[in-house]
Structure formats: structure tokens, C-alpha cells
Design a binder for these strands. Structure first.
Lengths: 320, 320
DNA sequence: TATAATTACGTAAGTGATTACATAATTGTT
DNA sequence: AACAATTATGTAATCACTTACGTAATTATA
């Protein structure tokens, strides 16, 4: 019974690895059973050095083979120990060590060429029998990965799902405590909770909504994980403030969705300008706002807000 | 510039490895960037334990996943350290350690299931975009490898080529010295060169050919690498003797080709029986003869030949 | 023309698997 | 019942890479 096989695409990488291991082992098995003092892993580096007319440097080899330079160093050390290549310092640039094939190396190549030819035909025949054009397949997959690597593909998909699962809700009295709690959570961590904070957080209805602003909540899987306020400054100007996302939900696009909704609400109300105050040290937040088109308008030297923390803060603006 | 790409099937294993590494790295990248304390290499073992109703043993896991049991031990140790699984001794068999998921483990699975789902869709979408049915491809290649692994495919091809490159030549006076030299080479190594040996090796024309026998030589890439004699015992009986293959060419099917030709020559001459004397300790030789159908007819206890060494020797016979 | 940035190489440690070997417990055989 | 063979697990060493970090040499820049 083969569990990995049953997992389908969930374990396709493991299956590819298992298959690759089989191929690599096949090569060393062949050398060993023929009593040849050579290993498959030496092949690419050795053959590259052999084919090149002028001696190559470590990093030239690494980039040609798309492997790390320590891998090249380890391989070349082994080849030098076997006497198949030699190294010498570059005459112009003393950082560079150049690698060239030796007489013994050339001899071995001549001996190995027919054997490598057998390697090649044996493999290509195997793929032919399996009715698989492996080179073309690898080429096509690599091309896709050059566009976007596996990690990013997965991350983007996860983020998209998380983003979709977040609901933005209007102010409801029963969520009032979250407005306070979520803001205290991070204010206490980074700054002090000042009197003006307390006043607004305790009385959002009075301080924000009655003044023509909004309070929004973000809910994810039945839990309130974020909040923000949109304060009305004047008919044409609104301000995003008191945005807070609980630590567990950070990185899950909650802030993005709250900001998106805040922008939409301000537009609806006929605002021409949306401003916000934040701290240059909160990189994630600043970058998030930037992606919406917010620009920094004031830095600490020019700011003169109501909060103590604003001497480290910045102001940002978005024209609607 | 991508040298490996240019090598085609000669480096297809390296390219597969490079591609696989990219996939494996993608997974850990995704977990890391989401701040999840989990690794791709834990997945198969963890998921297998999760899906199974009754706790599995180390070796059950190893065989289900087709990996070595030390790999399972290492993985489970890490999972235990993370508190995701627990282990306990089997009640019947005290050698067996059974592994079961913990409450914390189940919690993590529930959290990870949607993420694993994203892994799966991201990968399958990637392959779809590359127009590659990877699962089917792996299946087809694995099926071929189950028939014959990569190592054997290569070795067989090399042996076939070597076999084809060996020429069998009739006796020529200028090769006379090789008949002596090649035989001394191994006789001196395993036994003593006895007087009867010397007489025959010095005078093959007189001792073998004039008596109605043959001497054959094997040539590989312009070098004489092997020899054998076919002695005429009587009208219906010939004997293969003095077969020698130089050490460097051993394992290259030279002996096989010499034997094949010897059998053909004896048949041509109308022989009904081909015999030979060898030593039970020379396993490669005895096995070679066996593949031609030779059967052991006498062992040391019954043998009474002319040679000192025959008290360790055997006689073999092939009916033509 | 200092100094900062970049490049080339080297070393160390980690990764995720393997093979080889050891030991304890169980099962099979005479 | 005694011993051999097999099975289950564990440990050590190895493999073929990687990432992370350090240093020296060169090049770019203010």
C-alpha cells in the first residue's frame, strides 16, 4: 500500500523527490558496479569544466549550473583530490580562483564518454518507453516557476482565501467592547494609552458616529478580529483612525479589507480626501496604506497632533 | 545561461533534482511566511497518523510511505517534541512503539486542512497551466522503474556495448606471447604455474592445434584482453582450457564471448560433449559456464586430474 | 580619495534523507 | 527447551545539498 500515491497532488513534491532519488541512485550504482571511481554528483561540474576552453571561476560554474557556490566548492575540492582538475589564482583579480582540467582528467573523460553515452541512451529509452517527453515537461514546469515560484503560488492562494473569509460589519452595540479591547491590545504594546484614546474608545457612538463617522468590525470565522474608525473631519475630509487587528489574525489581510471598506465609505459620503496618522516604525501598516495609494504628507518634524506618540509619527493622505 | 538544460538527457536527473528542490522549498517558504510552526517534511508522517484509526508502529509508517525507518523515527521525534503526536508501547509486542495523534495535533490538523487544500490546488493549478499531468507521468515512470531500475538499465547497456566491441580472433603466431602472458597473470595469482602448464603455454601450436584443437584470442579496442584453448580429447569430446581474461577487462563479457565461440567451434567439429575443469572458488567463472548450460560432473573428492590444483577443482560438462 | 557597496570565495551549521550496524523481543525449528 | 532466524526499533555516520555569515578584494560614489 502506497499512502503517498493516494494523496495525489497534496504530496506530489514527495513523489517527485522519491523518483529523483531513484535516478540519482541508479547512476552511482552503475559507476560502482563497473568499478569506476566516479560519482554522478561530480558529473555536471566536471563536464562543464571539460567543455569550456578557458578556465572557469567558482561563481561562473555556480551560475551556469544554477546551484549554490558552496556546492561548487565542495564538488571541485573532491575533483581536485582525485587529480581530475586543478585550480590557480586569476592573474587580474586575486579574489578569483580558476579551475581547469588536468591530463588525468582528460584521460578519464575519454574513458567515460562512451559510458556517459550509455547513461544518456538508457535514460532516454526509459522515458520513451514510459511515453514521457521528460525534457519538455521539465522545461514547461520551469517556465511556469520562473513566472511565479511554488511558495508564492501557495501563499497567494491562502491569502486570497483568508481575505474572502473576512466579513466587514457595521457598528453594533454588542461589539462595542471589541472596539476598546482590540485597540488597547496594540496600544499597550507599542505606546501608552492616553486620555484622548480612552475617551474615544469608551464612547464610539458619542465620539465618532454622532459626529458623522463610522466604526467597522472585521469578523473571521464568527470571531471579531479587527476594527477601525472613520472620523469625519469636515464635509470633504475623513480620517482613518483606531485601526486594530488582533495579533493572531495579523497577516491575514484583515487590515486590507478594513482599509478597503473605509475608503469606500468615505467615497460614498462624498469625501475628497482621506487622511490617517500612523507611525513610521509600523512598517506593515505603512506599506498597507501605500498599496491603496496613501502618500506621506507630514513627518515627525512637522507634525503637531494631539498625541504624545505623534512625535514619532507620520501623516498620510489619499485623494479620492 | 543554463548548462544543465543544454545537456539534454545526459543530465536529466540533475534537472529533476533541481526542480524537486524548488518544490520542496516552496512548501517550507509558505509555512514560514504564514508564521505556522510546521514543515513540509513532517506532513506525510503526520497526516498518515492522523488519518489512521488505530495507532501505527514505526515500521508500518515506513512501509506505507516507502521511506526508511530511521527517517520515520526522526520525523516522529520532532512531532512528539511539538506535542502533536504521542507514543506508547504496544500491549502485546514490547518491541513495538505505537504512535497516535494528540489533542493539540488534531487542533493543528483542523487549522491546517484548509491550508493543505490551498497547497493542493496551487500545485495542481501550476501543473495544469504547464499542461502536464504530473501524477500520471510519475505513475508511468515508476511503473517502468519497477520493471527494471535505472542502475540496471545503464549497466546492461554498457555491458551490451562492451560485449559488441569484443572481437574473437583465431590463433595467430604474433599473438602467441599473449596466450602465455594472460594465463600466467592469473595462474600466478591463484595457483602455482605447474610444469604441464608451462609446456602447453609455450607451445600451443604443437600441443593444441596440431592435436585438432583451437586457440582463440579476444580483442577489445585493438588490445588483446583474453584467450582460451579448446583441446580435442576424442572425436566426440572437446575441452575448454586455459581461459584467461586480463584483470582490467574483467566484467566486460570477454569470457562470455570466448566461451560462446568455443562452444560454436566444438559444435562445428561435430563434438557431442564439451568439458572443462575449473575451481569451485572461482565463482564468476563457474556462474558464467552455468549460464551456457554446463553442469558440474565431478567435485574434488572424485577428481583425479593431472594438476596439483585439481584437488580443489571441479569438472563441468555441456552436452551439445 | 576616503568610504560604501558589491563581488568572490570560504566556512559552519543545518536539512532530510540515506546506509550500516547494534540490540532487544518475538517467532520458528529441531 | 535451546538455539537460530526474523522483526522492530534505535544510533551513528554519511550524503549532497542548502542557508547564513564572514573576510578579502575590487569597484562605485560622494
Amino acid at each position: 500500500m502506497d499512502f503517498i500515491k493516494a494523496l495525489g497532488y497534496l504530496a506530489v513534491a514527495s513523489r517527485m523527490k522519491r523518483l529523483t532519488d531513484r535516478f540519482m541512485r541508479g547512476g552511482s550504482q552503475a559507476y560502482k558496479s563497473l568499478g569506476i571511481d566516479f560519482e554522478p554528483r561530480l558529473f555536471t561540474v566536471f563536464y562543464l569544466i571539460y567543455t569550456q576552453d578557458s578556465p572557469l571561476s567558482i561563481s561562473e560554474i555556480a551560475s551556469s549550473l544554477k546551484i549554490s557556490h558552496p556546492a561548487v566548492i565542495q564538488t571541485t575540492q573532491m575533483l581536485i583530490k582525485k587529480g581530475l582538475i586543478k585550480s590557480f589564482q586569476d592573474s587580474q583579480d586575486r579574489r578569483i580562483r580558476r579551475l581547469a582540467i588536468t591530463g588525468k582528467g582528460k584521460e578519464l573523460v575519454n574513458f567515460l564518454i562512451p559510458i556517459w553515452n550509455d547513461f544518456e541512451t538508457a535514460t532516454s529509452e526509459l522515458f520513451e518507453k514510459a511515453d514521457v517527453d521528460m525534457l519538455d515537461i521539465i522545461k514547461r514546469i520551469e517556465a511556469r516557476l520562473d513566472e511565479e515560484d511554488v511558495g508564492n503560488r501557495i501563499i497567494n492562494r491562502i491569502k486570497q482565501r483568508q481575505y474572502n473569509s473576512v466579513e466587514i460589519l457595521d457598528y453594533m452595540p454588542e461589539y462595542k467592547e471589541y472596539f476598546q479591547k482590540l485597540n488597547y491590545e496594540w496600544l499597550e504594546k507599542y505606546f501608552q494609552v492616553e486620555d484622548l484614546d480612552k475617551k474615544i474608545l469608551l464612547n464610539p457612538e458619542e465620539q465618532i458616529i454622532k459626529e458623522g463617522g463610522f466604526v467597522l468590525f472585521a469578523r473571521m470565522e464568527e470571531k471579531v478580529v479587527g476594527t477601525t474608525a472613520i472620523l469625519k473631519r469636515d464635509e470633504k475630509t475623513y480620517e482613518i483612525a483606531k485601526m486594530a487587528v488582533t495579533e493572531k489574525a495579523q497577516g491575514m489581510q484583515v487590515g486590507r479589507k478594513l482599509t478597503k471598506e473605509a475608503v469606500a465609505r468615505a467615497k460614498e459620503k462624498g469625501a475628497k480626501k482621506l487622511i490617517l496618522k500612523t507611525d513610521n516604525r509600523l512598517r506593515a501598516a505603512v506599506n498597507l496604506y501605500r498599496t491603496f495609494g496613501f502618500k506621506v504628507t507630514q513627518t515627525e518634524s512637522t507634525a503637531s497632533g494631539k498625541y504624545e506618540r505623534e512625535r514619532f509619527g507620520i501623516q498620510m493622505k489619499l485623494d479620492l
